[in-house]
Design a binder for these strands. Sequence first.
DNA 1: TTCCTTATTGCAGTTAACTGCAATAAGGAT
DNA 2: ATCCTTATTGCAGTTAACTGCAATAAGGAA
Lengths: 140, 140
Amino acid sequence: MSCEVNLTNQLRERGFRITPQRSVILHILGHAKAHLTPAEVYQQASISLPGLTETTVYRTLEFLAQTGLAQTVFNGKSKYAYEISGYAHHHLVCRQCGTEVEIPHVKAEALFKELQESTGFQLMQNHISFFGLCPVCQED
Amino acid sequence: MSCEVNLTNQLRERGFRITPQRSVILHILGHAKAHLTPAEVYQQASISLPGLTETTVYRTLEFLAQTGLAQTVFNGKSKYAYEISGYAHHHLVCRQCGTEVEIPHVKAEALFKELQESTGFQLMQNHISFFGLCPVCQED
DNA sequence: TTCCTTATTGCAGTTAACTGCAATAAGGAT
DNA sequence: ATCCTTATTGCAGTTAACTGCAATAAGGAA
Ligand SMILES: [Mn+2]
Ligand SMILES: [Mn+2]
Ligand SMILES: [Zn+2]
Ligand SMILES: [Zn+2]
């Protein structure tokens, strides 16, 4: 019916079950304009699924990350955020003010390839957080 | 007296106060053979500083990270770890089994330089965590 | 030394993330 | 349609990380 059908089918084909909880959370992530925290996902998802628990939100988001449909954002503050895996990119995060800048994955492609070849690791191809100071916060 | 004097002097020169808590924690980090969690630091530090609280450990580790004397390790599990800033390196972390591989910073130097020039960010030059699957866990 | 300013700590309480286990329900088989 | 297996969820409780505020003490000034 709605927009997240292709993603749920992808899960079913891989042997996972499609639950209302997963559908709703995928729907929300799919329409998000920004990184969403578990609390934000829970808040929105509760509207259409009143019985939903935060535990399930945490587990579903982690599940989506493990299966590659979503990505975890590390902002350096022990608070998570997630987004649907789409356009491959990374972030520069200011350790002072939290400002985030998006970096297209292609800029890091050479490094990723090199690391994979030299270590045998299969790297998730996007969404690394690079930490530092933004231009504004450098004046301290 | 002991090994962490150069680090504490560095802090004093920058206008920070040297407390027994900071000295002990720096000493522990300086002698650590691996990444240490706040709990591990607390446990060890409590021996020589019985009154120490976990809160102070969390704040001191964060403080050392902010001032560049220590580095935060993101293992992808919302549990922190720290190490003294020494040899510049990064890590590949297996999302399945947690295995970590060390990568010398020099391999990422070109990318870092490029990102700094194109964005104006001043990046912390080490200790990025790249996530993926280790060779063993790829057989699933 | 003693005093003074204020950075740092400890305390108490909060929020975020995680875990074990029993109840539920997805989806394949009959 | 009904049953069955077991993946997934909700519940209750735990652990890790964080925060506000008053008490303490580092280190510069007198
Ligand atoms: Mn992103
Ligand atoms: Mn390291
Ligand atoms: Zn900034
Ligand atoms: Zn592995």
